[in-house]
Nucleic acid binder design. Structure first.
Lengths: 206, 206, 206, 206
DNA sequence: TATGAATGAGCTTTCATTCAT
DNA sequence: AATGAATGAAAGCTCATTCAT
């Protein structure tokens, strides 16, 4: 009896277990130090089974990377063609990152340490994700310049670098100092800091 | 008089050759994919000699890392205890990074891809460098708040994250897109972009 | 019934093959000159598989060493607490060594050249084996002194050194001169020589 | 002036320094773990100079080995053709070994751990030394059998193995337990133990 | 699907020896 | 005689990947 269970726990169950285990191990050890056998052990499955679900270690990493970027893009794509309200849009991006600390802390960590930088893992696909992000954000910035929300004397590409860099700097610091945001209030304070400086500047305003 | 140093073949010659070769290879391949024998070949010396000058591959990386940070700290420490002029100080930091693109492009690349992030290479010494940078910058920010140059409603630590993040975002983008600043004018424009947004904000100011 | 063990290819098959191959190669080349790849080739398996069964070359040696000592101790421990008959006991020890020449010539060789001496391979575990042997034999000697079988004017520890030394001297000579005992009669003659001298002395007795 | 000093400190001084340093280092680390550069440092001379005095590490070991054996043989050869007094002769051999603990403890150690056994260092020359020792001792034993001092029912070769084995067993134990003989009385007791058992046996004599 | 034994290329590091000075 | 920089072969170990079952 209980044949059903073998149906319920289909391909996806194991695959997800491997995925999660990989996130955990890669977060702890880094991609290069992450061992397939540790991922398998962590996932509670056998060594070789990893290769039934993922062609290689590299592809497993790609899957994680793709998952992360999908999340990011779903936020940005949600803006659609709508004009205006750039602060609201950027706030959404900031909050997306901050929220990930709670829902998927491993992935934030991996993003900072393994995806965001590091020649090591640099394939064309991975570079393309960045380019896409930058392009999308540049559109947002350019649109906001067109609508008069943002100043025109700085290239939209530059604004993109500055905004994303500031955000990433913040996130990285939280990762490296192991201080994820611990409350909604703190997230609000952080988001406000980033957005205030980006929009109004850090100079004291008399 | 003064025999040319290239004739004297002092200890430093070979050591420097190894150092430079390591920068080149690590930049191209990343630390993990960088092979000692490629570094040796690049330096024009034998395999074993690398180990005559550096105890291990890891220590060779440490030497590069240390060299980089010394440059950064010499800029910041140059500020001394002097009060005021925070914009001038931050401009100096920005220009230091931009100037490195010309003088030591390999090291900028390595900083972005291998030093700045990546758990892989994370030792205590390397973490300490970051902490030191952040602490020093936080002092600068706090000082500027005290003197009324910067707004008080955002923590100096946050300002640090945002400023350094924005700068690093810029530098990283230039590295990944392989677009180093090509002229003084361009550097000026970039520096101005970062500083303008940081101090005055990106909002259009009517 | 009972499928032949050679068909089942259990874990033990390969492990034993490696063990035997290691004995052969270490005997021929010595521990330091023994190469893992030669052991693997000799065992008919791949290089990496050695490390599947043994954590390191050193641990492989430990396994051999342990196997040897277990044999020795099983003989001595077989004496139990029984009193008397010291000559029978020492004869058992002598015969154990002589018998090993037939059943496991490689191990005798290794014992003489690699285990018995040589600081090189000296770990705590290995020293402990010696200490244990000496302590056990000292008990036997002391017991025989108590029961009046052995003279009391020489310390039991000294008797131990002399007896084991004489035995080992014999075994070593046979190893180095490559003259293992070739018949039961010869073994008897050798054992008798050792025991006779140890118990009655080499002086001519008129 | 003082040219003379360069003559006084001739070839022999440095060579002896290297020799002694090698003894010390090989004793501590074993032949394989002994590093040329450590020997040089210990001798207070430069790395490459070792190779002016000794063709190779192996030859340096040979020199030590030769030195040791010369001492041993000078004792045995001192017996000349004289007949009789076998106990006095064997006593001389025993005392030679015991005395070396004081005069050249390093060499005793090396003899036990590196010369006496260990396939590692086994060259034809080294094997020949052993053969020579055994042959000489066999002559002594045979002579003593001829003169009626020793029993005839045990082959002289066997007596040799037993006697030298017992002696070496003793010496080895002192080396491994790091308990060299500390007084003349103790040496006497040890020598007496070996000789008494060898000549009269360990049986209690009623 | 699932297992884990089996493979072997590839890497860092060591160190005896050589050699220019 | 003396130095120590320079050489490079060699070896142990790792680990992603494959494969027989």
């Amino acid at each position: 009896m209980q044949r059903s269970s073998s149906n319920q726990h289909g391909r996806r169950d194991k695959e997800a277990a491997i995925f999660d285990a990989a996130c955990k191990v890669i977060r702890e050890k880094g991609f290069h130090q992450a061992r397939i056998d540790e991922i398998a052990r962590q996932a509670g499955i056998s060594y070789g089974l990893v290769y039934h679900y993922y062609r290689s270690k590299s592809e497993l990493f790609d899957a994680i990377s793709r998952e992360w970027w999908n999340g990011v893009f779903s936020v940005i794509d949600g803006f659609g063609e709508e004009r205006g309200e750039v602060r609201k849009k950027l706030a959404a991006v900031v909050h997306y990152f901050l929220d990930q600390f709670e829902t998927r802390p491993d992935m934030v960590h991996i993003f900072v340490t393994e995806i965001s930088r590091s020649t090591v893992n640099l394939t064309q696909e991975r570079l393309d994700f960045f380019r896409k992000l930058f392009d999308k954000m540049e559109s947002v910035m350019a649109g906001a310049q067109g609508s008069g929300e943002l100043r025109n004397d700085i290239r939209p590409r530059y604004l993109t670098y500055i905004f994303l860099g500031a955000l990433e700097g913040f996130v990285s610091a939280m990762v490296f100092e192991n201080k994820p945001p611990r409350s909604e209030r703190q997230k609000e304070r952080i988001a406000n800091g980033i957005l205030e400086v980006f929009f109004s500047g850090a100079s004291s305003q008399e």
